[in-house]
Amino acid sequence: MLRNSSVIAALLLFSQPVVAAPTTTEQQVTIKLKNGDTLKGVLVPDETTEAITILLHPVLGRLRIPATALITEPPAKPWKLSVSGGLSANNTDSDLSAGGTFQLDTSYSEGADKVALKGRATYEVSRDQGENASTTDTNEGDGELRYTRRLGDRLNAYATTTFNYDMLNTIGTDVFVGSAGLGYDLIKNKTTTLNLSVGPSIQQIWGGPGCEADPICGQAFAAGTARAQLEWKPSSLASITVTNSYTGAYVNGIATNNTFSVALKIFPMGNQRLFTSLNGQTIFNALQSPRINNSVSMQLGIKLD
């Protein structure tokens, strides 16, 4: 009799559904409920439907969560647009200038593809060294068109063209760089992205009163380009973007063209819409004259995405 009772107890035990605890190798997801609770566990995609979500919780076991109980995040909009403008100050060697600047950033994403367009134009009153009179002109600006295709969770391919002009230069008022290659996200999470990219490129400079007498100005040269970009959003009130782009043209050895820029955005209302920004940029180009350009601006703007 005792033996039969043991067998029945064993059958009853093993007939109950057993839920294994999620292993550390399985991807954990976080689900937010309308009642304010948050659940973390492993999603069962084969059994999850639009009406029911199946989650393996490490403590509560197997959970069936109706869609009506979930807080669903709205899908990301494909278009993003940011417009800003403000005051600026500029120093190209001994030439001084001050005025206003306008900046436009827009992008479109669909699936694994993303196209981003950035542009900046500065209208300034400038005074050259040794001159008393001031002139008003749009003396500086730049633009970038960049296409990125995601090849994996962190690996991507890119193709980009950049254009920069500075009317204060005597040799090389205009610079064009075209590049294509591979990029990799060293850091990628909700608050921080660090992307490194490298590839072959082509560079050409032209323009300026001294261009005709310069043996390099007006020609195109093979080059290599490497870029590092850090985007950090510590909170809904602020974001920081730091970018360094290096291009080495194969002329007279390797001629350096390096652009370092920093942008700090403050969102006083915390809604990622209205913002104030402080922007700084340093350009060194061995093929231009003067070689160094420093600029800083404070802007007010709005994000329309």
Rank of each mutant, 00 (worst) to 15 (best):
Ile240Gln: 11
Arg146Met: 13
Asn156Glu: 00
Val59Asp: 13
Asp166Ile: 10
Gln103Gly: 04
Gln288Val: 04
Asp174Ser: 13
Glu50Asn: 15
Arg120Thr: 07
Asn195Asp: 01
Gln28Gly: 02
Thr68His: 11
Arg120Ile: 07
Asp142Phe: 14
Gly152Phe: 02
Tyr165Lys: 02
Asp166Thr: 05
Ser201Tyr: 06
Lys40Gly: 01
Ser295Gln: 09
Leu186Asn: 01
Ala112Asn: 10
Gly36His: 02
Ile54Cys: 10
Ala286Gln: 10
Lys114Val: 03
Phe102Arg: 00
Leu12Val: 15
Ala159Tyr: 14
Val262Arg: 05
Val115Thr: 15
Phe163Lys: 09
Thr259Val: 14
Lys190Met: 00
Thr276Lys: 03
Ala67Val: 10
Gln103Pro: 00
Met298Tyr: 14
Gly41Thr: 12
Val59Cys: 03
Tyr250Cys: 00
Gly172Trp: 13
Glu212Trp: 11
Ala133Gln: 15
Ala69Met: 11
Glu47Gln: 06
Ala112Gly: 07
Gly172Tyr: 05
Glu140Met: 11
Asp137Met: 12
Leu63Pro: 01
Gly99Ser: 12
Lys40Trp: 03
Ala180Thr: 01
Leu145Ala: 13
Gly253Ile: 08
Phe102Gly: 15
Pro268Tyr: 05
Val198Trp: 09
Gly253Asp: 06
Asp128Cys: 00
Lys34Val: 11
Val296Gly: 15
Tyr184His: 04
Glu26Asp: 04
Thr191Asn: 09
Arg146Pro: 04
Leu300Ser: 05
Gly41Ile: 12
Glu131Ala: 04
Leu60Ser: 13
Thr259Glu: 13
Ala220Gln: 04
Ser277Trp: 00
Asn4Thr: 07
Pro17Trp: 07
Asn252Cys: 08
Thr256Gln: 12
Thr241Ala: 07
Asn169Lys: 11
Thr135Ala: 01
Asp174Asn: 08
Ala286Cys: 08
Asn139Thr: 15
Arg227Gln: 10
Gln103Asn: 12
Leu33Gly: 00
Thr135Ile: 05
Lys265Trp: 00
Leu304Gly: 09
Asn244His: 06
Gly143His: 04
Lys233Thr: 14
Pro74Glu: 01
Ala51Cys: 00
Leu63Lys: 05
Asp46Thr: 04
Ala116Trp: 03
Ala223Met: 10
Arg227Trp: 00
Asp166Lys: 10
Gln229Cys: 05
Pro58Leu: 03
Arg227Thr: 07
Leu287Phe: 04
Gly178Val: 04
Tyr123Lys: 07
Ser126Trp: 14
Asn244Glu: 15
Asp128Arg: 12
Tyr158Ala: 09
Ala121Phe: 12
Thr282Cys: 05
Pro75Ile: 03
Glu110Ile: 12
Ala238His: 02
Ser15Glu: 06
Gly111Val: 06
